[in-house]
């Protein structure tokens, strides 16, 4: 389809004479390389898709100098290290004939993986959400975006989709490594896949929840400042301060209060939701046991509020 579209853009004026004009005019502004466009115009959906693709690449530093790739890919590597180590140990244990023992004792498995890499996931959101928004406000590029064939809410939605997809990839990659690794290590590959397949809905479900929540929350915060560093600090504060409060409170005043407070801590909420998707009815900080479903409810509420704030911000912002 893109080939056909390119053909449409090529007008009859495209001939050898055009090149001669360039040569004659040199670097002069009087050169005429201009002709009209009679090809297809795909409209808003195409425009939004293009913005999503561009923003997704931006969130991984693609198409930028190497510097921009260090943080996202470095964090992704760190998030994958536990998976690789766990697989290595499993392989070793298998050679030594102690596979079952290691399997039972390993702290790294599907249901514990997201809580283990939680901090790295937050770091990714805190570092890359401002990457997607700060420049457009700081250099007033929003004026160019908002004067295109999209709406303001499309801009917000495209950024959310892009960062959400980037985070989904970030979260699912290490678990995919474990999944494939375990299948290859199993005596019977088909049986190995079948044994792990049951965990897939939980893995994907929690990844979706985490990606959407953290992407929406960090973008909503980042949309209020053109300064990258401030945004990163603010996002981290919103995650760290409630988590620390929950930690301190569980020491000082264990009980239901801590449980209630933990419903406002994104880290605790995601851990609680993780417990729910892996079939645990109870979750929460050590001193307070809460129904794990409450955390899923809290996560959904955070998603709704963050998304609403993000869209509202771009509806009001002066480009």
């Amino acid at each position: 389809m893109s080939g056909a579209a390119g053909g449409l853009g090529r007008g009859p004026a495209d001939g050898p004479g055009r090149g001669a004009t360039v040569g004659a005019a040199g670097d002069s502004i009087y050169d005429l390389g201009y002709r009209g466009y009679q090809g297809v115009r795909l409209g808003r959906a195409h425009a939004v898709a293009s913005l999503v693709r561009q923003s997704f690449r931006q969130s991984w530093g693609m198409g930028r100098p190497g510097r921009a790739k260090i943080v996202p890919f470095g964090l992704a590597a760190i998030a994958t290290v536990p998976a690789v180590v766990a697989l290595g140990i499993s392989a070793l244990a298998k050679q030594l004939g102690a596979a079952d023992m290691i399997e039972a004792a390993s702290p790294i498995r599907y249901e514990t993986y997201y809580p283990v890499i939680g901090q790295v996931v937050f770091l990714f959101a805190a570092a890359q959400a401002p990457e997607l928004l700060a420049r457009d406000q700081r250099h007033r590029v929003l004026a160019l975006f908002f004067s295109r064939a999209i709406r303001r809410e499309d801009y917000a939605a495209a950024k959310l989709l892009a960062l959400g997809a980037a985070m989904l990839a970030f979260l699912l990659f290490p678990l995919a490594v474990i999944f494939v690794g375990r299948a290859l290590l199993a005596a019977d590959v088909v049986a190995g896949v079948a044994a792990d397949a049951g965990a897939v809905p939980a893995i994907v479900g929690e990844a979706l929840l985490t990606a959407w929540l953290l992407a929406a929350m960090s973008l909503a915060i980042a949309s209020f400042t053109p300064r990258r560093a401030y945004a990163t600090a603010a996002i981290f504060a919103v995650v760290v301060i409630p988590a620390a409060t929950v930690g301190v409170l569980s020491e000082l005043a264990p009980g239901q209060v801590v449980g209630a407070v933990s419903l406002f801590s994104p880290g605790d909420v995601l851990d609680g939701a993780n417990a729910f998707v892996f079939g645990h009815a109870q979750a929460g900080p050590p001193s307070a046991s809460m129904p794990s479903l409450a955390y899923v409810g809290s996560a959904l509420a955070m998603i709704v509020v963050s998304t609403a704030v993000l869209v509202a911000r771009f509806l009001r912002i002066e480009p």
Binding site: M1, S2, G3, A5, G6, L8, G9, R10, V22, D27, S28, I29, Y30, D31, L32, G33, Y34, R35, Y37, G39, V40, R41, L42, G43, R44, H46, A47, S50, L51, Q54, G63, L144, F145, R148, A149, I150
Partner: peptide, 29 residues
């Protein structure tokens, strides 16, 4: 990159956007 991206945001297909970008940048010198 900027101009091609802006062309796509106005609804032009990708290949056409690249081609128009080359033309227009030449037009403005």
């Amino acid at each position: 990159e900027l101009v091609a991206h802006m062309a796509e945001l106005s609804g032009l297909p990708r290949a056409a956007a690249r081609e128009r970008t080359a033309d227009v940048l030449r037009h403005v010198g």
